[in-house]
Amino acid sequence: MKKPAVALILAGFALTACQSSSDPSVRAHNAEFGCMAGTIGGAIVGGLIGSTIGGGTGRIIGTAVGVGGGGFLGNRLTCR
C-alpha cells in the first residue's frame, strides 16, 4: 500500500477514536459524526482496495464497486 493511503486510513481511525462524553446531546452529535466517518472511511478504504483490481476499465469498475461496497459496510458497522 502507498504511504498516502496508509496516512488516510490512520487519520480516519484517529478521528473516530476521540468520541466519549457523558452529556447526552454530545453523545448524539458524536454518534452522528461516527456514522459519517465510518461511511466515508469505508468508501475510501473500499476504493483503495478496489483500485488494485484489474487494469483499464476493470480498475475503474473495481474502484467504483469498492467505494460503494466500502461505504455501505462502513455505514452498517458504525450507524447502529
Rank of each mutant, 00 (worst) to 15 (best):
M1S: 15
K2N: 11
K2H: 08
K2D: 09
P4W: 04
A5N: 10
A5H: 08
V6R: 06
L8E: 00
I9W: 15
I9S: 05
G12N: 01
G12Y: 00
A14P: 01
A14H: 02
A14K: 00
L15A: 08
L15D: 02
L15Y: 04
L15I: 06
T16H: 04
Q19M: 15
S21A: 13
S22I: 12
S22M: 15
D23L: 13
D23S: 13
R27C: 10
A28L: 11
N30V: 07
A31L: 15
E32S: 12
E32T: 15
A37V: 13
A37K: 14
I40S: 06
G42I: 04
A43T: 08
V45C: 01
G46H: 12
G46L: 09
G47P: 00
S51L: 06
T52D: 07
I53L: 12
G54L: 08
G55D: 09
G56S: 06
G56P: 08
I61F: 05
I61K: 04
G62E: 01
V65N: 09
G66N: 06
V67Q: 05
V67W: 02
G68V: 09
G69D: 06
G71Q: 01
G71C: 00
L73M: 10
N75Q: 12
N75S: 14
L77I: 05
T78N: 01
